Amino acid sequence: MIEIHNIHKSFNGKKVLDGISGVFETGKTNLLLGGSGTGKSVLLKCIVGLLKPDIGSVTFDGTFFTNNKLDIRQEIRRKIGMLFQGSALFDSMTVEENIEFPLKMLTDMSKSDRKDRVNFCLQRVGLENANSKMPSEISGGMKKRVGIARAIAPNCTYLFCDEPNSGLDPQTSLLIDHLIKEITEEYDITTIIVTHDMNSVMEIGDKIMFLHKGKKLWEGTSDNILDTDVKEFKEFIYSNRLMRDAKTVEDERDDRV
């Protein structure tokens, strides 16, 4: 479980995050939702320690991360897996070398153990025998799966995904969503996903936090998302045609009842 307490962050006098608090639960897909420029990625960076909040704190399973001793912060960082927006694979490395990279950096595993772990992770994301391929030889969806394999390779406790469906077609996006959810549940990981994709929200939104202009305006699940009375959130939701259609169906059903 990850907890954030009263997070504030400004850049050059402009407030980007304004007092955000919340809990991200273990074994569930926790989504940070909002439009562009609402502070989602900045909040994610504050949580993982890439940025330091001006005010506020972050705890990982009860251990304070913000402003704690360096060795404690480093120990927590070793438990973090990251799936970057563009997959961020090393172009000059093979698929196997990309996945092995964090194992070399963060563990003392032997070469044979690293090889076994790479093969296991590739199998888990459905990319058996892709070891020798270069990033330029695989599709966007495959790159995302390699990125997931690399993120979970060091047996991460916490998984952070920044726009995992960016640039993917709807069918591949759905596959990536469900792969992340399956891995989260299977390994009991605390997963936080930054997204603006309402399809992802409805498919895998165990817990959703909606940000608008740096503030948390709504929190809930995909089951009660249509019941919101928050004006800004309703406008965001119904800018998506799928959600407008879902609302129409629900209203028609209510009228019949």
Rank of each mutant, 00 (worst) to 15 (best):
K104T: 13
N98W: 13
R241G: 08
T221A: 01
I152T: 04
M1C: 04
I7V: 09
K115N: 11
D169F: 07
K213S: 14
K215W: 04
G86W: 02
K234I: 10
K215T: 13
K216E: 11
I20L: 10
C121R: 08
D61Q: 11
I138K: 09
I80V: 15
K52Q: 08
P102A: 09
G62I: 13
S21M: 07
R77A: 06
K15H: 11
R244S: 12
D229L: 05
N224G: 10
Y238A: 05
I192L: 11
I180G: 05
H196E: 10
E182R: 15
M202Y: 13
E219P: 03
P170D: 07
S10Q: 07
L159F: 11
H8I: 04
F11A: 01
K234D: 13
R256Y: 09
M82W: 02
D197K: 00
I138V: 14
L168Q: 06
N129K: 14
I225Y: 05
F64A: 15
Q74G: 00
E185C: 08
V257M: 10
V42E: 00
G37C: 04
V194M: 07
W218A: 06
G140R: 06
I7D: 03
E163P: 06
I2T: 03
N6W: 01
D162W: 08
N67G: 14
K247P: 07
Q85G: 03
L44I: 03
V230W: 01
A149Y: 07
K247D: 13
A153M: 10
Q74K: 15
K247S: 03
A151L: 04
C46F: 08
K231I: 13
S222Y: 10
H178E: 13
Y187F: 13
H212D: 15
R256H: 08
M243G: 04
L175I: 10
F233S: 11
V125W: 04
A151T: 14
H5R: 15
K52R: 13
V230L: 01
R145S: 09
S10M: 00
R114P: 09
N68W: 02
F11K: 08
M134C: 02
F101N: 05
R145L: 08
K45M: 05
V201G: 03
I176S: 03
I208S: 08
E182Y: 12
K52V: 12
M202R: 10
D177L: 01
S41N: 10
L44S: 06
C161G: 08
V16Q: 01
L122N: 06
G205R: 00
N199I: 03
L89S: 09
E219S: 11
D113A: 15
P164W: 00
K231E: 14
K45I: 00
I4F: 00
S112T: 13
Q85I: 07
I2A: 05
T26G: 05
H5I: 04
I237T: 06
D227E: 15
C46T: 14
L217Y: 11
G13M: 05
I152L: 01
M202G: 06
E186D: 12
D255P: 00
S92C: 09
S239K: 11
Q123N: 12
V257N: 11
L32G: 01
K28E: 14
I192M: 12
S57N: 14
F233N: 09
Y158W: 03
G34P: 05
L32T: 01
M109E: 13
N240Y: 10
Y187K: 09
P135E: 05
C121K: 06
M142Y: 02
V118A: 02
M82I: 14
S200G: 15
H8Q: 03
D223W: 04
